[in-house]
Amino acid sequence: MKVATQTISASECLLRMYDEHHEIEDYQKGVPRWCTGCGDNAILTAVQRLCRDEGLLPEKTVFVSGIGCSSRLPHYMNTYGFHGIHGRALPVAEGAKLARPDLDVFVNTGDGDCCSIGAAHWIHAVRYNMDLTMMLHDNQIYGLTKKQASPTSPIGTKSNTTPRGSYLEALNPLTVTLGISNVSFVAQVVDWIPEVLYQVISAAFHHKGFSFIRIVQRCPEWLPKQMDPWMHDPQRVLLLHHENGLEISPALAKVYTKMEEHDPANMNRAREIASSDDPIPVGILYRDDDIPCYEDVRHDSRLRTAEMVKNGLNAELDKFTVWPEGATHA
């Protein structure tokens, strides 16, 4: 758990005697409005399990999202959350982390939110390498707006914007991310293997730096059966395992026999694996713990007093003030 790396004062230890245990229900808020059968539910459960297992304090945890089905996730977490505007989840999360590095910040975004309108933020968030955990819920379609092609829709996908089938090859979020400077954690999972989903999110959470997880997710409403060939044939899933990556349980290894030992430090092999969409690679593709985090490099040690915030705001507002003739700028 991340707290272990911070200094624990005597008073904090005292507190932990009383308050350290949470149930999954403690992190649940409201009833999800997602369609029945939606893969977003699996992701929600995985992050709630993570919060419970790591004993994350709700008031020290933030989920930030943009717009889309995926981005409703903060509504269902009993933590702090920010349902932002389209494509801007990452800048909001970066701001929160920079101002409050003590918080655990998660970002939930979709293939439209991240790979289309928010693509610029995605690239720079990887380069900034702030200590955030980003989950890209990739269901290959705009679902909330009722079926339009997204950047990751496979070529030929028929949708309301592409009635004759989409014309372009899908964008591969893994190869893009692996090509950005300072990339420090890239993983891929599928929503229908909850055990691996949880393990990867947990590994991403423990990684110090920007963790990018692409979650291949079913959309039972607009693209039903799209992922069935992979879901019903374990041979079309390639499990990546390594002593520095995932440990595959014997039960899982019995079902998913197609496996590869892949060292997450090997960037060249990671890029090769990332290029494959059949079988779908599942596991940690790349990890580098030595990339510095932006918030550490740029941390401002000044105390953010009310006065400092007020002066800062005033200084900003003064830039747009029309000073009467003859008046001097105080």
Partner: peptide, 25 residues
């Protein structure tokens, strides 16, 4: 249960017959 994705299909059908365990599966 370990493979359940918590998609609510079964619980929506009959929440007395189907329920979630402590892992929400």
């Amino acid at each position: 249960s370990a493979r359940c994705t918590t998609c609510n299909e079964c619980t929506n059908l009959n929440d007395r017959m189907f329920a979630y365990n402590a892992e929400k599966q």
